[in-house]
């Protein structure tokens, strides 16, 4: 065998990185004692590893910071955009108002009745309608309740994004 498998190569790299689990490490070290090809490959990979470990950061020019700061004078100021948060707060107020209004209307019994749609009452010619069409009946209260539920979900998301998350982020940083 002239070449190691990818799995063996990965194990050697993890061994060099010190991330190989203890049992696998013992097994590899036993294998290294008897397998010359494995030892040779470990040495090759170690050569790269050692060079990189001693690699240092590149040093920019001395006036790097001054030059960036000079260019900043002509760049627009990064004023924080408050609009998305403000808009979200307005939207949250709107959602809460809609929920409140809908709840009041439900409580006053506006949606207590049910609505039916019957196409049989329409003035379509008999030639077209041969059979009885089913009548659709739906409760206004149920629909409004579903809309309120959806509004509550949207309200929670807005509350989280616009108020709670920014507030706790600021507290964590304080």
């Amino acid at each position: 065998m002239n070449r190691l498998s990818q799995a063996q190569e990965d194990i050697l790299l993890e061994y060099l990185d010190g991330t190989l689990a203890a049992p696998a490490k013992i097994k590899l070290e036993e294998e290294l004692r008897v397998n010359a090809l494995l030892r040779l490959r470990l040495d090759e990979l170690r050569a790269v590893h050692t060079i990189f470990q001693h690699a240092s950061l590149a040093e920019p020019s001395r006036d790097f910071t001054a030059r960036v700061m000079q260019k900043l004078d002509t760049a627009p100021s990064p004023t924080p955009s408050r609009w998305p948060i403000r808009n979200a707060i307005f939207l949250l107020i709107g959602v809460l108002t809609a929920i409140g209004a809908a709840a009041l209307l439900i409580a006053s019994g506006v949606f207590d009745g049910s609505t039916s749609i019957s196409l049989n009452d329409s003035s379509l010619p008999q030639k077209i309608i041969q059979q009885e069409i089913p009548v659709f009946t739906f409760s206004g209260k149920l629909i409004i309740n579903i809309i309120i539920m959806l509004n509550i979900v949207v309200g929670w998301i807005l509350l989280d994004r616009a108020i709670l998350r920014p507030y706790f982020q600021r507290r964590m940083q304080a």
């Binding site: 040093e59 790097f64 910071t65 700061m69």
Partner: peptide
């Protein structure tokens, strides 16, 4: 901020 990160950025 530039002084903190310029070496990594440049590298």
């Amino acid at each position: 901020l530039i002084n903190r990160h310029k070496q990594y950025a440049y590298t």
